[in-house]
């Protein structure tokens, strides 16, 4: 395959390798992000058809990390992140104009009030659109936003163009940004929005995948190999406890292994203990009911 075809298709390989001369872009986590074949295909499909990629999955399955992985592998610089809150509006992804501050400045005679650009702050998507180079935008946990939020983004997402009436400026993307939207499926997203997205659900990783993640993420701690294996096995048993309100995810596993490592828990003890007697269950159970269920669980 030629370089040109590589540029138009299968740009993202999901192997964690960065282009020569580019530093790996991370959020501070250690290790590489490895994507499976279908996820790689979905990412490249989204890039190809220039649509956002909507990624769902359990918490801790690496939805957010995916954006950084794409940016790192494609050498697109740091990810522009937008963490959705329940009071966000679609416009917040593009820009925010601080009317009150300008009003205050105007009241106090501050000369900055005459320069409206001073009160303009660009959101992640707005920053990406006005960027001269292609960027990766992460709109994280969109299901936390109000109902109208996704639909209000449709026009800008389609055209990758927006206007700011306060300063009478219009921005259009020179290179369409790669938009990654994550959702924890707390709320169904509207159909019009879904139609404009490429969809992929990241399944929770199984044994080997979990061990690989642990080794990548906690490799700097020089964990004993047996600890990773045993902790992963016990973690999977805990996830099988019936009735758990919130099954522990990868983030909880990483935290738990960190605690186990820091406390110097013996691997054989960890391996032989009953589920109810496993140490530091507080790192895995996030509710009283779940803690009770784990305490009552039998091997």
């Amino acid at each position: 395959m030629t370089a040109g075809t590589t540029a138009s298709w299968m740009r993202y390989r999901g192997d964690g390798n960065t282009p020569q001369g580019h530093a790996a872009e991370t959020r501070g986590e250690h290790g590489r992000y490895l994507a499976d074949t279908r996820l790689v295909t979905a990412v490249n499909t989204a890039i190809t058809v220039e649509q956002p990629l909507l990624v769902t999955g359990e918490p801790g399955t690496g939805k957010t990390m995916l954006a950084w992985s794409i940016a790192g592998e494609l050498g697109l610089g740091p990810v522009l992140e937008f963490h959705t809150r329940s009071d966000h509006q679609a416009r917040d992804t593009l820009y925010d104009f601080d009317h009150l501050l300008r009003f205050y400045h105007a009241q106090t005679g501050d000369p900055r009030a005459a320069e409206p650009q001073t009160y303009l702050r660009f959101g992640a998507l707005g920053e990406a659109i006005r960027s001269a180079v292609q960027r990766v935008v992460l709109i994280d946990e969109i299901d936390k936003a109000p109902r109208d939020f996704p639909n209000d983004m449709l026009d800008e997402m389609d055209k990758m163009q927006f206007s700011i009436p306060e300063v009478e400026l219009t921005f259009a993307a020179v290179r369409r940004p790669i938009v990654i939207v994550t959702s924890n499926s707390e709320r169904q997203l509207p159909d019009p929005f879904l139609r404009r997205c490429v969809f992929h659900r990241i399944a929770f990783p199984a044994g080997d995948g979990l061990q690989h993640i642990l080794r990548e993420r906690l490799g700097h701690l020089n964990l004993a190999g047996r600890l990773v294996e045993v902790a992963t096995n016990r973690f999977e048993q805990i996830r099988q406890v019936p009735g758990l309100e919130k099954k522990p995810s990868t983030a909880e596993l990483i935290a738990w292994v960190k605690v186990l490592h820091a406390a110097g828990v013996d691997v054989s003890t960890l391996s032989n203990a009953a589920i109810a007697d496993l140490p530091f269950m507080g790192a895995l159970a996030k509710s009283e009911q779940d803690a009770l269920l784990i305490a009552r669980a039998r091997d």
Binding site: T37, R38, A42, V49, T56, D191, L194, C197, F199, H200
Partner: peptide, 14 residues
Amino acid sequence: DAVAALIGRTEDEV
């Protein structure tokens, strides 16, 4: 896989 990701909107649809 690409077509499924493009058209499906839920895991079941994919």
